[in-house]
Design a protein around this nucleic acid. Sequence first.
DNA 1: CGTTTTTGACCGGCGC
DNA 2: GCGCCGGTCAAAAACG
Length: 278
Amino acid sequence: MACSSWINTSLDLNINPRRVHEEVPKEVESKLFSLGMPKFNVEEESTSDLEEELKRVTAENKKLSEMLSVVCENYNTLRNHLMEYMRKNNEKEVSPTSKKRKSESSNNNSTCLMGTNNGNSESSSTDEESCKKPREETIKAKISRVYVRTEASDTSLIVKDGYQWRKYGQKVTRDNPCPRAYFKCSFAPSCPVKKKVQRSVDDQSVLVATYEGEHNHPQASQMEATSGSGRSVALGSVPYSPKVPQVLVEQMATSLTTDPNFRAALVAAISGRLLHKN
DNA sequence: CGTTTTTGACCGGCGC
DNA sequence: GCGCCGGTCAAAAACG
């Protein structure tokens, strides 16, 4: 599919601002590992050094925050452009010949959106083609698609998006040997949102989640930071802003954890810490 | 024991 | 009208 143009979510962070790899001087090492850790060798540090370090980290933090807001802004702009583009395309292609099943093919306004949080997606569902049958009036729910890359070994059809879902069905469809799972939002009984999850035919490591409708409640994970219904996806205690699509956050996390540089830094940090303990 | 998942049955739309 | 197909229901099983 041409849709699988993956956003490179690697943050390209300056993870080793003080070159951990080359012969790590003791003093640098201790500085690195004393950040956020229980104290050790603190007495060797002059307060001015620490203050300088704090300044540096604060500045970097600020810079990252700015970058993030810019990325979000760009994302929203791009998404709006895409919406507009697809809407125009749809207007052009309203040909009476395409009288297929109304399923997949008809309502793909927002196909290929990476992590569209249907919460605030721009309403492009002006009733362009939904005036045929009275039945479709009830289905003017917004439809969006989200592509999520998973571990190849992961056979579950679980897409973490911050909401709580209850599975109510599973089917093997004709065009795809992988079963399609049907979910309803179980957080609020009145919430009309449904979601279908199926592996991509092209790439089985990719889950395609199709969302229908809009949630009429906040994300479950924002309300139950510590409640233990293990199934839902409370990613630590970090609340994700509704402005930042959860899938993007997931991808960034994946990028980080698979980034060799990040891993190397982590390994260095852990081993360095262990060394200091011994 | 309450909630969620599983899974076969059922329903309705669509094409022939 | 019939069969196919996607979507949903609901009873039973599994789970915590």
